[in-house]
Design a protein around this nucleic acid. Structure first.
Lengths: 167, 167
DNA sequence: TTTATTGAAACCATTGTAGTTACATTCCAT
DNA sequence: ATGGAATGTAACTACAATGGTTTCAATAAA
C-alpha cells in the first residue's frame, strides 16, 4: 500500500515549471524528466490547474505557475492531486455485526484516532514548501540555488526510455 | 487510496479476545462479529501470532492474548499486520530522468519529508493502546468498562450476512 | 492554413485487497 | 483409538485502483 505517485510527480512538475523559461515546459518536456507519458503529466497539471496552482491554455505551449513555490506547501499539492481523500487514509471495515457490542462501536471508537493520525501526517506536509524541496534539489546538486538550477536544467533531455526527441 | 482494513480488523479481534471466555474466540466467532470470512480472521491472527501478540494452536479452539491490551499500542498492531511498510507510505516515481538536475535529485529531496510525515502519523498510533480503544467502545456502549462488556458481548451473534449459528 | 499543444475520453495491463474454497494437520473428548 | 472441530495455508476469484497508452477534438500561434 502506498500513496499515489501523482503527488511526487506533481511536486517534480512544479519545480520544473519554476526553473523553465516561459513556454518551454510542455507536457512532453516534463514527461521526459519524470520519465512517463505526457498524458499522465497533463492529467496532473489539470488537477493543479483546478486547484489554482498552475495555469495552462489549450493550444499554447507550457504550463505556468500561478504562485511562487514559496507560497505552495506540499499539503497544497497533496490536496490538489487528491493524494488521500479527506479522512480516508485509514479505512474501517464496513458493516461489522451490529448485534455485538464490539462490532457495534468499533468504527466510532477508531475513527477519531485515524483522523488524528492522518492530520499529524498532513501537518508535516503543510510545514514544507515546494520551494524548500527545490532548495534541497539544488543543494544535492551542489549549486547555489534555484537560479543556478534554472541555467543548467536541459530543455529536452534524452529520456531513459524512448526519447521523445525534437526532430 | 487507503490503508488495508486488516488493521482495524486486527484491533477488533484483539478486543474480542480480551472480553471472551477462554476457548470461545474461534475464527468463526470473530468473523461473525467483524462480518467477514473466518479465513480472513485466521490470516490476521496468524500475523498477530508471528508478532507475539496472540497465541493459537492448530486444533484447539480460540486464540489467546499474550499481553494485556494495556501493553499493546495501535502501532504494534499496525506493524504486526504490515498495514504500511517501513518508509513506504509514500512512493516516489522511480527512474526519473538522470540527465535532468531535477529528475536526478527529486527522490533524495522528497524522501526525508515523506519519512518524517509517515513517522508523525505512526507516533499517533504509538500513543494509543488497544485498551484505550476498548475503553472507548465500552464508553460508547454506556457501560462501565471492559468487564461489563465481557458480560454482555454475545458468544455467537447472528451475522448481518449468513449467520454461522451453533447448531 | 499548417502545425504544435492542451484537454479529455476510452481502453488496457498490472497490482493489491478481500472473499472463498479446499484440505492437511492438530488436538480434544468420547 | 477414533471422530469431530478448529487452525494454518495454499490456491483461486472478483473487484477496484493505478498508471500507461491511444486517439481525437479544440485551441492558438506562426
Amino acid at each position: 500500500m502506498n500513496i499515489s505517485t501523482k503527488f511526487p510527480v506533481a511536486v517534480h512538475t512544479l519545480i520544473l515549471l519554476s526553473v523553465s523559461e516561459p513556454g518551454t515546459a510542455t507536457s512532453e518536456f516534463i514527461a521526459s524528466s519524470v520519465n512517463t507519458n505526457p498524458v499522465v503529466i497533463r492529467r496532473i497539471t489539470g488537477m493543479l490547474g483546478r486547484a489554482g496552482l498552475v495555469e495552462a491554455r489549450a493550444g499554447v505551449a507550457g504550463s505556468r505557475l500561478r504562485r511562487p513555490l514559496e507560497d505552495i506547501t506540499l499539503l497544497d499539492v497533496y490536496k490538489a492531486v487528491n493524494a488521500v481523500g479527506e479522512g480516508e487514509l485509514f479505512a474501517v471495515h464496513d458493516s461489522p455485526n451490529p448485534n455485538c457490542e464490539v462490532g457495534r462501536n468499533i468504527q466510532a471508537a477508531m475513527n477519531p484516532i485515524f483522523i488524528e493520525a492522518q492530520r499529524a501526517m498532513e501537518r508535516v506536509l503543510e510545514n514544507t514548501t515546494v520551494a524548500a524541496v527545490a532548495g534541497d534539489v539544488s543543494q544535492l546538486e551542489g549549486l547555489g540555488g534555484l537560479e543556478a538550477l534554472a541555467a543548467i536544467c536541459p530543455p529536452a533531455p534524452a529520456g531513459t526510455s524512448e526519447a521523445p526527441g525534437r526532430e
